[in-house]
Design a protein around this nucleic acid. Structure first.
Lengths: 182, 182
DNA sequence: CCGCAGATATATCGTTTTGATATATCTATT
DNA sequence: AATAGATATATCAAAACGATATATCTGCGG
């Protein structure tokens, strides 16, 4: 792989299953993988253009039924090799940025109520995200026997497990802060 | 706050407790808050220069004992206001990027062994990070009565809780993948 | 006491990513 | 027929990363 862009691997991974437009790719990223990865048009389109030039993907059926242009991308053998190479490298950067924790850490600069408010906001966020994941999980149980779905199932389970741990922590944090004299 | 830079708030939050050099700030970020926030020199130094110009921080005691320059930064009232304003806003972006989950999600492109290898690598990472956090927690228990430490304690607890959830998931994921026919 | 490795300290640069915006077409609804 | 919302591509300024350059200070072994 020439460049050191993570978005390239995300795109290749998605294209491995099916041909997609840039817009489709964005939808996939905002869908079932959004709780562990993000990506914007500003990185997707340039990456597609670059990878097309260097032969990792190719344009397929620039469909112009009617008038509107729509560019479907297809992964090449070179692209598949790059994807597999990345999967084989025993290394992974897991970058977490919890603004909630940052605010809590600096909590001493404000009153206890502010800290509690931020924890409650976090709790609400987590609860709604968790509800979405549980729906994914229910839908998956019906097709669990299909070979490829096991990997999707594992990531969804990961999300649910961590979100449940967050909620438990929220409960305890509220108790500790609540039972603390100002 | 003029610009929309998160690093500004991190710096202000750290400077609220004590005057620091850019290098000190980097050390603090790499220390007890590294598991929920990151920051590089490439963002710290430009942010300090900007914030000094706009009056959020000021240079203190450009110590030149001997010869070597060392710039200590001090938070101003304007800086404290900006920090408190941020803490009061009921909003927080928690951005998670787990390359491990990404690889697992695309696992269908490779064999089961590769997926297992990546889970084991993740497990090792988590175990060593968890050990560090437990040491932090032990040290904190001794000073838990001190008012400001409660916030630090809560963030450390959050890290431990989530890492423990990760480990439980790793165990189950290995079982599920292990008991799966290729 | 000299050498030298490693920590301290500031700073910059190219690359990647974000988040917002612009533009235009297609589709379903009222 | 109007129009709101989804589809689709693309670009740009701003933010952050990660690597590198430079230089000094400190402690340790030979």
């Amino acid at each position: 792989m020439a460049k050191d862009r993570k978005i390239d691997l995300v795109i290749l991974g998605l294209l491995f299953h099916e041909d997609l437009t840039g817009y489709d790719i964005k939808k996939r990223i905002d869908g079932g993988i959004s709780f562990f990865w993000k990506g914007s048009f500003g990185s997707i389109y340039p990456a597609l253009a670059d990878m097309e030039k260097s032969g990792y993907v190719e344009k397929r059926g620039v469909q112009t039924k009617g008038r509107r242009e729509k560019i479907l991308y297809h992964i090449t053998d070179k692209g598949i090799d790059a994807l597999k190479e990345w999967l084989n490298v025993e290394q992974a950067a897991n970058d977490l940025k919890y603004e909630t924790m940052l605010k809590l850490y600096f909590g001493g600069a404000q009153d206890k109520g502010t800290a509690l408010k931020n924890i409650r906001y976090f709790e609400d966020q987590v609860k709604s995200d968790l509800a979405v994941l549980r729906v994914y999980q229910e839908n998956l149980k019906k097709v669990m026997d299909q070979k490829d779905h096991i990997y999707y199932y594992l990531t969804v389970t990961f999300g649910i497990d961590t979100y449940e741990a967050y909620l438990k922590w929220c409960g305890r944090a509220k108790k500790i802060l609540g039972g603390m004299e100002e």
